[in-house]
């Protein structure tokens, strides 16, 4: 019997690709965000509104990870920005290799690259895709207990957008609980309450995002 020390990170290949992505983005002067949430929390609507409000000020490109369809990508394409669709063919997350491939196709003559991950609060948290900031969207109908239920995801968030706050009046949702749990899991994260469809809080989000782009 022989024993061989390996001491290797299981995702070392992914991490190498994520480092390559960071290098490419740095060389091009592109600021990239990774948008994550469960399905239906409003990722694409937030992206749509954000692009619509900022596209005259910044050049924006968009990479969309979707299991199978190109529904999200075609919604964003209508706004006139450069869109690349990644079909993960069933995979529940984007990995760095998929994003690296998409970077060959997407226009990097931009100030902001928005990467919309696959709708899932678990798997995308494990894979570094080289983005500068992680934006996690939680929506009111999902319930106020999600932060502690998915601590790995909320721990890596730089910004948490609490979406669909226009529905607070119809549902038993305690915003204070979300704030308290987020403070436990990730005190550095910024929590911004929004309604992407009604527009509430969106200006706060845009100015926060603009500050990040300009930094």
């Amino acid at each position: 019997m022989k024993r061989v020390a390996v001491e290797k990170k299981i995702l070392e290949r992914n991490d190498e690709s994520a480092n390559r992505i960071r290098k490419i983005l740095k060389d091009k002067g592109v600021f990239a965000i990774n948008i994550m949430s469960s399905p239906g929390a409003g990722k694409t609507t937030v992206v749509e509104r954000t692009i619509d409000s900022l596209k005259n000020k910044y050049r924006i490109s968009y990479i969309d990870g979707d299991l199978d369809t190109d529904r999200d990508a075609s919604r964003i394409r209508e706004l006139g920005v450069d869109v690349v669709q990644i079909n993960t063919s069933g995979a529940c997350h984007l990995d760095a290799d998929m994003v690296l491939k998409a970077l060959e196709k997407v226009s990097l003559d931009c100030d902001l690259l928005i990467i919309e991950n696959v709708g899932n609060l678990v798997c995308p948290a494990t894979f570094d895709i080289g983005a500068h900031k992680n934006i996690v969207i939680l929506s009111v109908p999902e319930g106020d207990d999600k932060v502690k239920k998915y601590p790995v995801m909320f721990n890596i968030a730089d910004v948490v957008l609490l979406n669909k706050v226009d529905l607070l009046k119809f549902l038993n949702f305690d915003v204070g609980k979300v704030k308290k749990e987020l403070k436990d899991v990730n005190p550095k994260a910024e929590l911004i309450q929004i309604s992407a469809t009604k527009g509430y809080g969106m200006r706060m989000w845009y100015s926060f995002l603009e500050r990040l782009i300009l930094l």
Binding site: M1, K2, R3, V4, A5, V6, E7, K8, K9, I10, L11, T126, N155, P187, K188
Partner: peptide, 19 residues
Amino acid sequence: MPLDIVEGKEMEIIDIEGD
């Protein structure tokens, strides 16, 4: 102050045994 996670995020192969 916010804490930094120093352990608990590992995903590693430590070693292998074989013939």
